[in-house]
Design a protein around this nucleic acid. Structure first.
Length: 380
DNA sequence: TTAGGGTTAG
């Protein structure tokens, strides 16, 4: 981000569009220093749209939790601003302060579809279904987003049957579902284990024309796998025109679950891009199947490629390391290089600043069980 | 114009 700012301003004047996309990135990543620099830049050069500018700055300061700076921006508005107020509600919901969100909502002289949906989805996010429904039912501006927020919120709270009923109501009200709606609905069918219902949804997806959407196809692959329809999952994957890392990981996971390590590895090597989950799935299966060296080697490559391991990945590699360590004394004479990958991994993790991620105590207890205390101290 | 909805992987 810092480099992007530097290079853009050095080469040619930064465009409004580029400036806003950088500011959004600052908000997303919580980069207050760079966001502040952009703010200064805005003041210096001025922008064509002051209102838009102020809203983006407000979002950035709210996301970075700089309330004093956010207040300054708010003071710049000439009285009540609907969009800014909706941003304040969203920020309160994100902090989990629903009372504050409700207070902000109540004090609004006017509200729009965004204000109502922010409240309804906010309550669902924290499992407060009844309060959410209060806002949902009274929302005078229902649209595909407010309906989808309710459907997906129900699914997230495990209310899959109710989610399906809501989906039908949405249809009856003449609101056309979109790709986001379908991903939630397909998930509900998977959770319900309802194959026939899922196939009916599929015919609807084909009718409405979302069969080429990546997220919808991915959710259908998962649906098929959960219901044990491996061939169907494979067919969907092969018919996809564009696949993302999630499509690939789902198929990788399918072979991993089937215990077909050869095919899983073939998919793993073929994947155009990988993420922490794909690495972890492969490493975990190697470790569980007794291919401990391969697990540790792959872990080494994962760190080298710049991925941070998550708790479950660390747990698999630690148990693989423990097995190797137990074997190490006897094997040292015959295979002196064998342990070097483990040592290199530790060094690399330290160099790259890989933290022992959340759930550390769980990993530690796993490790202390697997290794004598002295060896654990040496490892850490 | 901005602000509100998400799923898919371990």
């Amino acid at each position: 981000m810092r480099d992007a700012l530097k290079s853009r301003s050095a080469v040619n004047p930064i465009t409004n569009l580029a400036r806003f996309s950088l500011l959004k990135e600052c908000a997303r990543q919580g980069l207050i220093t760079q966001g502040g620099v952009l703010h200064g830049h805005f003041i210096k050069v001025g922008t064509s749209s002051k209102a838009y500018n102020a809203i983006q700055l407000l979002i950035m300061y709210l996301k970075c939790q700089r309330s004093a700076d956010a207040d300054q921006i708010l003071k710049g508005f000439n009285g009540f601003n609907l969009v800014a107020h909706n941003c304040l509600i969203a920020a309160s919901v994100e902090r989990g302060n629903l009372d504050e969100a409700r207070r902000l909502f109540d004090e609004m002289p006017e509200r729009n579809e965004v204000s109502w949906t922010a409240l309804a989805s906010g309550f669902l996010k924290y499992g407060r279904v009844e309060e959410s429904m209060w806002y949902f039912e009274r929302n005078p501006f229902h649209n595909v987003v407010s309906w989808t927020a309710a459907v997906s919120g129900f699914v997230q709270n495990g209310l899959n049957y109710k989610a399906m009923k809501l989906f039908l109501d949405m249809f009856r009200c003449g609101v056309r579902p979109n790709d986001v709606t379908f991903t939630s609905v397909v998930r509900a069918c998977a959770e319900l284990g309802a194959f026939e219902l899922g196939m009916s949804v599929l015919s609807l997806i084909l009718k409405v024309g979302f069969e080429h959407n990546i997220s919808v196809s991915n959710s259908f692959i998962t649906f098929s796998l959960r219901l044990g329809k491996v061939d169907l999952a494979r067919r969907i994957f092969h018919r996809m025109e564009v696949r993302d890392v999630i499509s690939w990981t789902a198929i990788l996971d399918m072979y991993v679950e089937m215990g077909d390590l050869t095919e899983a590895r073939r998919v793993f090597d073929e994947m155009p891009t990988r993420n922490t989950v794909s690495w972890s799935a492969m490493i975990a299966r190697y470790s569980q199947s007794g291919y401990t060296e391969e697990a540790v080697k792959l872990f080494y490559r994962m760190i080298q490629d710049g991925f941070s391991p998550n708790t479950s990945c660390l747990a698999s590699v630690i148990s693989a390391m423990a097995c190797l360590e137990a074997l190490h004394a006897g094997m040292n004479i015959h295979a002196p290089g064998r342990w070097s990958d483990v040592m290199n991994t530790r060094k690399l993790m330290k160099e790259k600043g890989v933290k022992k991620s959340g759930g550390c105590s769980w990993v530690e207890s796993h490790l202390t069980q697997a290794l004598p205390k002295k060896q654990w101290k040496d490892l850490a």
